[in-house]
Design a protein around this nucleic acid. Structure first.
Lengths: 139, 139
DNA sequence: TATTGACTTGAAGCACACTTCATAGTTTAT
DNA sequence: ATAAACTATGAAGTGTGCTTCAAGTCAATA
Protein backbone atom coordinates (compact mmCIF):
# COMPACT_ATOMS: atom_id res chain seq x y z
CA UNK A 1 0.00 0.00 0.00
CA UNK A 2 1.39 3.31 -1.10
CA UNK A 3 0.43 6.85 -0.19
CA UNK A 4 -0.31 9.43 -2.86
CA UNK A 5 3.20 10.80 -2.55
CA UNK A 6 4.80 7.37 -2.80
CA UNK A 7 2.72 6.43 -5.81
CA UNK A 8 3.78 9.70 -7.42
CA UNK A 9 7.43 9.00 -6.68
CA UNK A 10 7.28 5.47 -8.01
CA UNK A 11 5.51 6.38 -11.22
CA UNK A 12 7.04 9.77 -11.84
CA UNK A 13 3.60 11.36 -12.16
CA UNK A 14 2.34 14.15 -9.92
CA UNK A 15 -0.26 13.42 -7.25
CA UNK A 16 -2.51 15.82 -9.14
CA UNK A 17 -2.11 13.78 -12.33
CA UNK A 18 -2.98 10.60 -10.41
CA UNK A 19 -6.13 12.24 -9.10
CA UNK A 20 -6.91 13.44 -12.60
CA UNK A 21 -6.59 9.91 -13.99
CA UNK A 22 -8.85 8.63 -11.27
CA UNK A 23 -11.46 11.34 -11.97
CA UNK A 24 -11.30 10.47 -15.66
CA UNK A 25 -11.79 6.80 -14.78
CA UNK A 26 -8.51 5.60 -16.20
CA UNK A 27 -7.99 4.08 -12.79
CA UNK A 28 -10.57 2.31 -10.67
CA UNK A 29 -11.67 4.15 -7.54
CA UNK A 30 -8.58 3.96 -5.37
CA UNK A 31 -8.99 2.48 -1.91
CA UNK A 32 -8.99 4.95 1.02
CA UNK A 33 -7.96 4.69 4.63
CA UNK A 34 -10.00 6.02 7.58
CA UNK A 35 -8.87 9.57 6.90
CA UNK A 36 -9.98 9.31 3.29
CA UNK A 37 -6.38 9.29 2.13
CA UNK A 38 -5.74 7.23 -1.01
CA UNK A 39 -3.97 3.88 -0.68
CA UNK A 40 -2.49 2.62 -3.92
CA UNK A 41 -2.03 -1.15 -4.18
CA UNK A 42 0.70 -2.88 -6.19
CA UNK A 43 -1.88 -3.61 -8.89
CA UNK A 44 -2.88 0.04 -9.00
CA UNK A 45 0.78 0.93 -9.51
CA UNK A 46 1.14 -1.66 -12.27
CA UNK A 47 -1.94 -0.37 -13.98
CA UNK A 48 -0.64 3.19 -13.75
CA UNK A 49 2.56 2.05 -15.43
CA UNK A 50 0.48 0.46 -18.14
CA UNK A 51 -1.32 3.77 -18.64
CA UNK A 52 2.00 5.56 -18.82
CA UNK A 53 3.08 3.18 -21.53
CA UNK A 54 -0.09 3.91 -23.47
CA UNK A 55 0.40 7.64 -23.01
CA UNK A 56 3.97 7.33 -24.30
CA UNK A 57 2.39 5.88 -27.41
CA UNK A 58 0.19 8.99 -27.55
CA UNK A 59 -3.02 7.12 -26.94
CA UNK A 60 -5.49 9.82 -25.85
CA UNK A 61 -6.93 9.81 -22.36
CA UNK A 62 -10.39 9.32 -23.84
CA UNK A 63 -9.38 6.12 -25.65
CA UNK A 64 -7.79 4.70 -22.55
CA UNK A 65 -10.92 5.57 -20.63
CA UNK A 66 -13.04 3.79 -23.21
CA UNK A 67 -10.80 0.74 -23.07
CA UNK A 68 -11.00 0.62 -19.29
CA UNK A 69 -14.74 0.95 -19.46
CA UNK A 70 -14.95 -2.06 -21.78
CA UNK A 71 -12.61 -3.97 -19.51
CA UNK A 72 -14.89 -3.32 -16.55
CA UNK A 73 -17.93 -4.40 -18.53
CA UNK A 74 -16.17 -7.71 -19.03
CA UNK A 75 -16.30 -10.68 -21.36
CA UNK A 76 -18.88 -9.67 -23.91
CA UNK A 77 -16.75 -6.72 -24.97
CA UNK A 78 -13.78 -8.89 -25.82
CA UNK A 79 -13.95 -8.38 -29.55
CA UNK A 80 -14.32 -4.66 -29.22
CA UNK A 81 -11.27 -4.55 -27.02
CA UNK A 82 -9.37 -6.69 -29.47
CA UNK A 83 -10.19 -4.28 -32.28
CA UNK A 84 -9.16 -1.31 -30.15
CA UNK A 85 -5.81 -2.86 -29.40
CA UNK A 86 -5.36 -3.64 -33.08
CA UNK A 87 -6.03 -0.01 -33.93
CA UNK A 88 -3.53 1.13 -31.30
CA UNK A 89 -1.01 -1.21 -32.83
CA UNK A 90 -1.45 0.33 -36.27
CA UNK A 91 -1.08 3.73 -34.72
CA UNK A 92 2.11 2.76 -32.96
CA UNK A 93 3.55 1.33 -36.16
CA UNK A 94 2.79 4.55 -38.00
CA UNK A 95 4.45 6.62 -35.32
CA UNK A 96 7.54 4.45 -35.35
CA UNK A 97 7.73 4.83 -39.13
CA UNK A 98 7.43 8.62 -38.84
CA UNK A 99 10.10 8.71 -36.20
CA UNK A 100 12.44 6.55 -38.22
CA UNK A 101 11.94 8.98 -41.04
CA UNK A 102 12.83 11.86 -38.76
CA UNK A 103 15.76 9.83 -37.46
CA UNK A 104 17.21 9.40 -40.93
CA UNK A 105 16.76 13.06 -41.79
CA UNK A 106 18.31 14.14 -38.52
CA UNK A 107 21.19 11.75 -39.03
CA UNK A 108 22.02 13.28 -42.39
CA UNK A 109 21.64 16.79 -40.95
CA UNK A 110 24.17 15.85 -38.28
CA UNK A 111 26.75 14.55 -40.70
CA UNK A 112 26.17 17.58 -42.89
CA UNK A 113 27.00 19.81 -39.93
CA UNK A 114 29.99 17.70 -39.02
CA UNK A 115 31.41 18.22 -42.49
CA UNK A 116 30.78 21.94 -42.24
CA UNK A 117 32.43 22.17 -38.85
CA UNK A 118 35.54 20.46 -40.18
CA UNK A 119 35.77 22.87 -43.10
CA UNK A 120 35.94 26.47 -41.86
CA UNK A 121 35.70 27.74 -45.44
CA UNK A 122 32.02 26.85 -45.54
CA UNK A 123 30.88 28.12 -42.19
CA UNK A 124 29.52 31.38 -43.50
CA UNK A 125 26.75 29.97 -45.60
CA UNK A 126 23.25 31.23 -44.95
CA UNK A 127 19.70 30.00 -44.85
CA UNK A 128 19.09 29.21 -48.49
CA UNK A 129 22.70 28.16 -49.06
CA UNK A 130 22.48 25.62 -46.29
CA UNK A 131 19.13 24.42 -47.48
CA UNK A 132 20.40 23.94 -51.02
CA UNK A 133 23.66 22.33 -50.00
CA UNK A 134 21.79 20.01 -47.72
CA UNK A 135 19.14 19.20 -50.30
CA UNK A 136 21.53 18.47 -53.10
CA UNK A 137 24.22 16.82 -51.08
CA UNK A 138 26.80 19.53 -51.67
CA UNK A 139 30.15 19.14 -49.87
CA UNK B 1 4.45 28.66 -57.72
CA UNK B 2 1.54 27.36 -55.69
CA UNK B 3 -1.51 29.09 -54.28
CA UNK B 4 -2.45 28.76 -50.63
CA UNK B 5 -4.95 26.08 -51.48
CA UNK B 6 -2.48 24.11 -53.61
CA UNK B 7 0.21 24.31 -50.95
CA UNK B 8 -2.33 23.02 -48.47
CA UNK B 9 -3.28 20.14 -50.73
CA UNK B 10 0.33 19.18 -51.40
CA UNK B 11 1.38 19.25 -47.77
CA UNK B 12 -1.83 18.04 -46.20
CA UNK B 13 -1.88 21.05 -43.87
CA UNK B 14 -4.69 23.59 -43.76
CA UNK B 15 -4.17 27.07 -45.21
CA UNK B 16 -4.74 28.37 -41.71
CA UNK B 17 -1.94 26.18 -40.42
CA UNK B 18 0.37 27.45 -43.14
CA UNK B 19 -0.41 31.04 -42.16
CA UNK B 20 0.14 30.11 -38.54
CA UNK B 21 3.58 28.70 -39.35
CA UNK B 22 4.41 31.84 -41.25
CA UNK B 23 3.26 34.07 -38.38
CA UNK B 24 5.35 32.02 -35.99
CA UNK B 25 8.34 32.42 -38.31
CA UNK B 26 8.78 28.75 -39.04
CA UNK B 27 8.61 29.79 -42.66
CA UNK B 28 10.21 32.82 -44.25
CA UNK B 29 7.81 35.57 -45.37
CA UNK B 30 6.09 33.93 -48.32
CA UNK B 31 6.17 35.81 -51.65
CA UNK B 32 2.93 37.56 -52.69
CA UNK B 33 1.40 38.39 -56.07
CA UNK B 34 -0.22 41.75 -56.98
CA UNK B 35 -3.37 40.86 -55.08
CA UNK B 36 -1.33 40.06 -51.96
CA UNK B 37 -2.09 36.37 -52.37
CA UNK B 38 0.64 34.04 -51.15
CA UNK B 39 2.76 32.24 -53.74
CA UNK B 40 4.56 29.22 -52.39
CA UNK B 41 7.74 28.20 -54.23
CA UNK B 42 9.04 24.65 -54.55
CA UNK B 43 11.59 25.46 -51.86
CA UNK B 44 8.85 26.72 -49.57
CA UNK B 45 7.02 23.45 -50.06
CA UNK B 46 10.16 21.44 -49.35
CA UNK B 47 10.78 23.43 -46.23
CA UNK B 48 7.19 22.87 -45.12
CA UNK B 49 7.70 19.13 -45.55
CA UNK B 50 10.83 19.40 -43.43
CA UNK B 51 8.80 21.14 -40.74
CA UNK B 52 6.18 18.40 -40.93
CA UNK B 53 8.88 15.85 -40.40
CA UNK B 54 10.10 17.75 -37.35
CA UNK B 55 6.54 18.02 -36.04
CA UNK B 56 6.07 14.27 -36.52
CA UNK B 57 9.05 13.92 -34.22
CA UNK B 58 7.19 16.14 -31.73
CA UNK B 59 9.67 18.94 -31.94
CA UNK B 60 7.80 21.94 -30.53
CA UNK B 61 6.96 24.91 -32.74
CA UNK B 62 9.15 27.09 -30.53
CA UNK B 63 12.23 24.92 -31.07
CA UNK B 64 11.72 24.90 -34.80
CA UNK B 65 11.30 28.67 -34.69
CA UNK B 66 14.55 29.00 -32.78
CA UNK B 67 16.34 26.76 -35.21
CA UNK B 68 15.05 28.76 -38.19
CA UNK B 69 16.13 31.95 -36.48
CA UNK B 70 19.67 30.62 -36.08
CA UNK B 71 19.64 29.48 -39.68
CA UNK B 72 18.72 32.99 -40.83
CA UNK B 73 21.46 34.50 -38.66
CA UNK B 74 23.87 32.29 -40.56
CA UNK B 75 27.34 30.91 -40.18
CA UNK B 76 28.36 32.03 -36.72
CA UNK B 77 25.50 30.04 -35.19
CA UNK B 78 26.66 26.76 -36.72
CA UNK B 79 27.74 25.16 -33.47
CA UNK B 80 24.52 26.11 -31.74
CA UNK B 81 22.54 24.56 -34.56
CA UNK B 82 24.66 21.45 -34.40
CA UNK B 83 23.93 21.10 -30.70
CA UNK B 84 20.23 21.63 -31.28
CA UNK B 85 20.13 18.91 -33.89
CA UNK B 86 22.05 16.62 -31.55
CA UNK B 87 19.47 17.24 -28.85
CA UNK B 88 16.63 16.53 -31.27
CA UNK B 89 18.36 13.32 -32.19
CA UNK B 90 18.49 12.20 -28.55
CA UNK B 91 14.84 13.06 -28.22
CA UNK B 92 13.91 11.04 -31.28
CA UNK B 93 15.86 8.06 -30.01
CA UNK B 94 14.04 8.22 -26.70
CA UNK B 95 10.68 8.36 -28.40
CA UNK B 96 11.53 5.40 -30.60
CA UNK B 97 12.54 3.43 -27.54
CA UNK B 98 9.27 4.31 -25.78
CA UNK B 99 7.27 3.31 -28.81
CA UNK B 100 9.09 0.04 -29.18
CA UNK B 101 8.22 -0.62 -25.59
CA UNK B 102 4.58 0.11 -26.30
CA UNK B 103 4.85 -2.03 -29.42
CA UNK B 104 6.01 -5.04 -27.45
CA UNK B 105 3.35 -4.63 -24.82
CA UNK B 106 0.65 -4.21 -27.43
CA UNK B 107 1.92 -7.23 -29.30
CA UNK B 108 1.57 -9.40 -26.23
CA UNK B 109 -1.86 -7.93 -25.49
CA UNK B 110 -2.91 -8.89 -29.00
CA UNK B 111 -1.77 -12.47 -28.73
CA UNK B 112 -3.36 -12.69 -25.31
CA UNK B 113 -6.68 -11.65 -26.86
CA UNK B 114 -6.22 -14.03 -29.73
CA UNK B 115 -5.87 -16.91 -27.32
CA UNK B 116 -8.95 -15.79 -25.43
CA UNK B 117 -10.97 -15.51 -28.61
CA UNK B 118 -10.05 -19.05 -29.57
CA UNK B 119 -11.12 -20.35 -26.19
CA UNK B 120 -14.76 -19.47 -25.46
CA UNK B 121 -14.42 -20.87 -21.95
CA UNK B 122 -12.36 -17.88 -20.91
CA UNK B 123 -14.32 -15.10 -22.49
CA UNK B 124 -16.20 -14.16 -19.36
CA UNK B 125 -13.25 -13.00 -17.35
CA UNK B 126 -13.39 -9.51 -15.91
CA UNK B 127 -11.16 -6.56 -15.23
CA UNK B 128 -8.90 -7.94 -12.53
CA UNK B 129 -9.01 -11.46 -13.98
CA UNK B 130 -7.80 -10.20 -17.30
CA UNK B 131 -5.16 -8.09 -15.70
CA UNK B 132 -3.86 -11.01 -13.64
CA UNK B 133 -3.97 -13.50 -16.49
CA UNK B 134 -2.16 -11.05 -18.67
CA UNK B 135 0.42 -10.18 -16.04
CA UNK B 136 1.24 -13.72 -15.12
CA UNK B 137 0.99 -15.24 -18.55
CA UNK B 138 -2.00 -17.42 -17.75
CA UNK B 139 -3.42 -19.41 -20.67
C1' DT C 1 -23.97 45.00 -61.90
C1' DA C 2 -24.01 41.73 -58.71
C1' DT C 3 -22.55 37.59 -57.09
C1' DT C 4 -19.16 33.93 -56.55
C1' DG C 5 -14.97 32.27 -54.89
C1' DA C 6 -10.33 32.47 -53.56
C1' DC C 7 -7.80 35.08 -50.79
C1' DT C 8 -6.53 38.62 -46.87
C1' DT C 9 -6.31 40.03 -41.64
C1' DG C 10 -6.46 40.06 -36.45
C1' DA C 11 -8.75 38.16 -32.85
C1' DA C 12 -11.10 34.89 -30.51
C1' DG C 13 -12.07 30.04 -29.68
C1' DC C 14 -11.07 25.17 -28.81
C1' DA C 15 -9.34 20.44 -27.36
C1' DC C 16 -6.18 18.21 -24.73
C1' DA C 17 -3.69 17.02 -20.63
C1' DC C 18 -2.60 18.45 -16.96
C1' DT C 19 -1.43 22.12 -13.12
C1' DT C 20 -2.42 25.41 -9.81
C1' DC C 21 -5.26 27.55 -6.47
C1' DA C 22 -8.08 28.22 -2.42
C1' DT C 23 -9.69 26.11 1.38
C1' DA C 24 -9.79 22.77 4.79
C1' DG C 25 -8.93 18.42 7.58
C1' DT C 26 -5.35 15.23 9.89
C1' DT C 27 -0.89 13.53 11.80
C1' DT C 28 3.62 14.09 13.65
C1' DA C 29 7.33 16.51 15.63
C1' DT C 30 8.95 20.16 18.73
C1' DA D 1 -0.08 23.98 21.44
C1' DT D 2 1.66 25.30 17.43
C1' DA D 3 3.87 24.48 13.21
C1' DA D 4 5.21 21.47 9.43
C1' DA D 5 3.96 18.05 6.37
C1' DC D 6 0.67 15.42 4.11
C1' DT D 7 -3.85 14.81 2.38
C1' DA D 8 -8.55 16.17 0.46
C1' DT D 9 -11.87 18.80 -2.75
C1' DG D 10 -13.84 21.51 -6.70
C1' DA D 11 -12.85 25.01 -9.68
C1' DA D 12 -10.12 27.75 -12.32
C1' DG D 13 -5.87 28.39 -14.92
C1' DT D 14 -2.16 27.11 -18.38
C1' DG D 15 0.52 25.95 -22.65
C1' DT D 16 0.43 24.03 -27.14
C1' DG D 17 -1.07 23.90 -31.70
C1' DC D 18 -3.89 24.85 -34.31
C1' DT D 19 -9.10 26.26 -36.02
C1' DT D 20 -12.79 29.25 -36.57
C1' DC D 21 -14.84 33.68 -37.03
C1' DA D 22 -15.88 38.29 -38.70
C1' DA D 23 -15.03 41.53 -41.88
C1' DG D 24 -13.01 42.94 -45.91
C1' DT D 25 -10.23 42.99 -50.84
C1' DC D 26 -9.90 41.60 -55.51
C1' DA D 27 -10.87 39.32 -60.20
C1' DA D 28 -13.64 36.81 -62.96
C1' DT D 29 -18.21 35.27 -64.26
C1' DA D 30 -23.53 35.30 -64.94
Amino acid sequence: MYSAKEAAEITGLSTAALRYYEREKLLPQIRRNRQKYRQYTEEDIEWIKMIQCMRMANIPIQSIKQYVSLLIQGGTTLEQRYRMVQAHMENIKKQIADLQNAFALTQSKLSFYEKLLKDPMHQNITYIDEWNLFQHGGL
